[in-house]
Amino acid sequence: MNATRTVRVYTSVGLVAAVVLAVVFVPLLFPVDEQAVDMAHKLQAPSLAHPFGTDDVGRDVLLRCVYGLRVSLLVGVVAALASTVIGTAVGAASAAAGGRGDRLVMRVVDVFSSVPHLLLGIFIVAMFRPGVWPVVVSVGLTHWLSTARIVRAEVLSLRSRPFVDAAISGGASRLRVAVRHLTPAVLPQAGLAAVLMVPHAIWHESALSFLGLGLPTHRASLGNMIQDARGTLLAGDWWPTLFPGLFLIVPTLAIAGLAGVWRERINPRRRSELML
């Protein structure tokens, strides 16, 4: 069991590292215009010159995948951070307020949760001109709900622990208990939620782009690429669809693997391994 976990850790860390290195360094090493059209080499099957082939206007799929992943990761990380910050703040404030304020906030969360994310996201991006930031705002504003719930539940359960009573009896103010005892206890959970949110946000970005509501269509993004390649897939040209799809799945699996390791680490049961 330990061996498989070690393999999982190294695989996940390796993949995440590879993804980050690729999106940082490939554009630096190959400063070509990934949007340049080259009709002479359109729809070429994977070869040494173009390992992932070219798309229907002759652009290199590998290069566009990397650029697309770069945009997707940027959107994913920023949106995940934003939603985690909002969710943690709302959840903690709701738990701290208690009573009527808490109930009101949670009902609002329930209402938002009852609307499908994607629908709400579409509604938000539709209010702006296509671009990266509307997508970030849209994903960030629709994904803090579950984090808020997790953080609120965690704070509520922590608040009634005897160690908080002990702190009160020791003269600690509400702020001090929140900062010194509750926040450090909630952070690992909130951090885990943020990490798990990154692939989710990437998929949302792709979905919005696929629907033509996300990034401008000429920008390389994984969603745009899959959308563009839909027509060619029917003609039997599989590579412009397959590779962006893989680029979507691999980081997702890698991040999920890392999050799993993290979850095990913050699980208090592991602490009692010694049973003394």
Binding site: M1, N2, E273, L274, M275, L276
Partner: peptide
């Protein structure tokens, strides 16, 4: 507490951790 009593019980039930 901490003298090893519970570890002994776990050993008899085969419930010791991997280490």
């Amino acid at each position: 507490s901490g003298c090893g009593k519970s570890v002994l019980a776990s050993a008899l039930l085969g419930l010791l951790p991997g280490n």
